[in-house]
Computed example of a mutant assay.
Amino acid sequence: MTTEVSAAEEFVPPSAPDFWQPLVGDGAFALTRSMVVMVLVTIGLAVVMMLVTRRLAVVPGRGQFRLEGMYGLVRNSIGRDIIGSAHFKPYIPLLFTLFTLILVNNLMGIIPPIQFPTMSRIGFPLALALGVYVVYLVAGVRRRGIGGFLKNLVPSGLPLFVVPVVFVLELVTFLITRPVTLTLRLFGNMFAGHILLLLFALGGEFLLLHGDGLLKLVSIPAFLMFFLFSAFEILIAFLQAYVFILLASIYIAEVYADDH
């Protein structure tokens, strides 16, 4: 025996268009939810940084202690250890800004009532990745000059007939592969994680409200998985911010590789 299900009771799984969410206007110039979240996070971070650092003390309070711990992680475990103690200091403001900005924007995916990870919109990770590569390019050119920077793309000692091929491959890697992979790693993880959260939340709600008989009970494990994945997303949010600045530091460190 079959029963007809009305269109209103059909489950519609989450998809990519659910991440667009324009608030004002439409098309390329629309004001979207992700833009608003990014602006709020940026302003919030600026306010918190100013409030915490306005009255620094030898014996730090809880806010100063947490901020110093985060700063120490970026400065020592990433900047100094990877870029090198002789060259890391000018890049710490960039790395710390990237880390905090990415981390808080990632956490927006599980914080009510926002629950939207900004980095699940590919334009934001792409902009950050391009910013890293501008810094990397400028540092390389300032250190070696344009000719030396391009020459450094090809390892020494290669047969002459292989050099053009290796140069083209390395140039493509530098200009395309690295920025794209740096972008997609952050974007893909945040997009996929939020899709899973939406799937469990909407699926559980659908089963609870429209399921027949025992199907309503299936909503319980669906909601449990939603809360479990929400906790897991906290770890993912931190790891993705950490990995992004880790890779950024590795790329910058290549400029000073001959000093190590």
Score class of each variant (00 low, 15 high):
Ser249Asp: 03
Pro164Ala: 12
Arg144Trp: 01
Ile122Cys: 06
Arg80Thr: 01
Val243His: 12
Leu198Trp: 12
Phe174Ala: 08
Leu150Lys: 06
Arg143Pro: 00
Leu73Ile: 06
Ile78Arg: 05
Tyr136His: 08
Asp258His: 03
Arg185Pro: 03
Val37Lys: 03
Val163Gln: 14
Ala257Thr: 02
Asn106Ser: 08
Val39Cys: 07
Val41Trp: 06
Leu73Gly: 01
Ile176Met: 10
Asp212Pro: 00
Phe124Ser: 10
Phe19His: 05
Arg80Ala: 07
Val24Phe: 12
Arg33Thr: 00
Thr42Cys: 02
Gly147Ser: 05
Ser120Pro: 01
Tyr136Gln: 07
Pro14Trp: 02
Gln240Gly: 03
Val166Ala: 11
Leu101Thr: 12
Thr173His: 11
Glu10Ile: 14
Val39Thr: 10
Leu169Asn: 07
Asn152Tyr: 07
Val163Trp: 05
Ala8Tyr: 12
Val166Ser: 11
Glu205Trp: 10
Phe11Ala: 11
Pro221Trp: 12
Leu31His: 06
Pro13Ile: 13
Lys216Met: 14
Ile245Tyr: 02
Tyr136Met: 08
Phe223Pro: 09
Gly188Trp: 12
Met70Thr: 06
Thr2Ala: 14
Leu182Val: 04
Gly211Lys: 12
Ile110Glu: 04
Ala30Gln: 13
Ala231Gln: 09
Tyr136Leu: 02
Val218Met: 15
Ala192Trp: 13
Phe116Ala: 05
Pro179Tyr: 11
Leu158Asn: 13
Leu128Glu: 15
Leu198Asp: 14
Lys151Gln: 15
Phe96Tyr: 09
Leu169Pro: 02
Leu198Gly: 09
Pro159Phe: 13
Pro93Arg: 00
Phe227Asn: 10
Ala237Pro: 00
Thr53Ile: 09
Leu228Lys: 11
Phe232Gly: 11
Arg55Met: 10
Gly109Val: 05
Gly145Phe: 02
Glu254Met: 06
Tyr136Pro: 00
Pro164Lys: 09
Pro93His: 03
Leu126Tyr: 13
Val132Tyr: 00
Ala7Trp: 07
Ser120Glu: 11
Val168Asn: 08
Thr97Tyr: 05
Ile146Phe: 14
Ser6Arg: 13
Arg144His: 02
Leu199Asn: 12
Ile252Ala: 01
Thr183Cys: 07
Val135Trp: 01
Leu215Lys: 09
Ile78Met: 09
Gly204Cys: 09
Gly148Arg: 04
Phe229Met: 15
Val5His: 12
Glu233Phe: 03
Asp18Tyr: 00
Arg54Gly: 09
Leu73Asn: 06
Arg143Tyr: 00
Phe88Ser: 11
Pro112Arg: 03
Ser77Glu: 15
Phe29Gln: 14
Ile110Asp: 04
Val58Cys: 08
Ile195Val: 15
Asp18Ile: 00
Ala7Asn: 08
Ile43Glu: 09
Phe244Leu: 04
Pro159Gly: 08
Pro155Asn: 09
Ser156Pro: 01
Val162Leu: 15
His210Ala: 14
Leu103Trp: 13
Ala139Val: 04
Val162Ser: 12
Val255Gln: 00
Arg142Met: 01
Ala7His: 05
His260Arg: 15
Ala201His: 10
Leu235Cys: 06
Pro221Gln: 11
Pro13Leu: 12
Ile252Pro: 00
Ala139Ser: 13
Phe229Cys: 11
Ile176Glu: 09
Gly145Arg: 01
Leu224Gly: 13
His260Val: 14
Gly148Tyr: 10
Ala86His: 01
Val166Cys: 10
Thr32Trp: 00
Lys151Trp: 07
Lys89Asn: 08
Phe11Trp: 15
